[in-house]
């Protein structure tokens, strides 16, 4: 599969009839976006600071390792910086940014196979014993890999709906599908996750 064919085709289009998520720009984003469009780099830095964690986590869900997730998240913001002048506020800034992030992740995955790697400087949970942490980390790794192995649209739906807590309408705007399709994809994805984890990844 080529990088181009892997990208969700609607993502960079506008006026395509795809439902728009949250038609209003979040109040706190509006000023920063407008200032960024005027070329104020400090304002764009505020947007980076506000969304860096969400974008990083979304990227991590796709690649399952820190270094690639970090690199991709930087790439997402670089693309957003280049395109901020064309952002018209039809959707929320976060929805627009997630579109860029999902497309970047899909293109990256098309070009490289993911390498599972734990974060070396991840913060330990001091409340849990070492054995508990180990077991929980292992289970989390298995689930992340199962999510990562889902078909493209199911994976995007699970990541955006479950881990980023977006509404069905917002997910629909990002992945370019109807709300009904998003719900169906999510239902299939949850069943597939259950099957894959029950069979150790073999469905």
């Amino acid at each position: 599969m080529t990088a181009a064919s892997s990208a969700i085709p609607f993502l960079l289009a506008s006026g395509d009839g795809v439902p728009r998520a949250g038609s209003r720009l979040r109040e706190e984003d509006r000023d920063a976006v407008a200032a960024s469009q005027r070329g104020e780099r400090e304002a764009f830095d505020r947007l980076v600071q506000r969304y860096q964690r969400d974008v990083y986590r979304l990227c991590y869900r796709y690649v399952n390792n820190h270094h690639d997730a970090s690199d991709m998240a930087q790439e997402v913001f670089l693309k957003a910086y280049r395109a901020i002048g064309s952002f018209r506020g039809d959707s929320s800034f976060s929805t627009w940014l997630y579109r860029i992030a999902v497309n970047t992740c899909l293109n990256f995955r098309a070009a490289r196979r993911p390498i599972a790697e734990e974060l070396p400087d991840a913060l330990p949970d001091r409340r849990a014993s070492a054995a508990e942490r180990l077991e929980r980390d292992e289970q989390a790794r298995r689930v992340r890999e199962a999510v990562s192995s889902l078909p493209e649209k199911q994976r995007a739906t699970v990541i955006l709906k479950i881990y980023h807590d977006l509404t069905h309408e917002e997910v629909a705007a990002i992945v370019g599908a109807s709300v009904g399709t998003v719900k169906a994809n999510l239902f299939h994805a949850l069943g597939n996750l259950r099957k894959r984890l029950a069979t150790g990844g073999r469905e």
């Binding site: 964690r53 999510v147 069943g191 597939n192």
Partner: peptide, 24 residues
Amino acid sequence: ARQGLGLASQADVPEPSPLYWEDF
């Protein structure tokens, strides 16, 4: 699907150190 949802919630992303974000 309900069980799949329960499993999905067990997949936290490792949290980088606070110093990482400044560098990012």
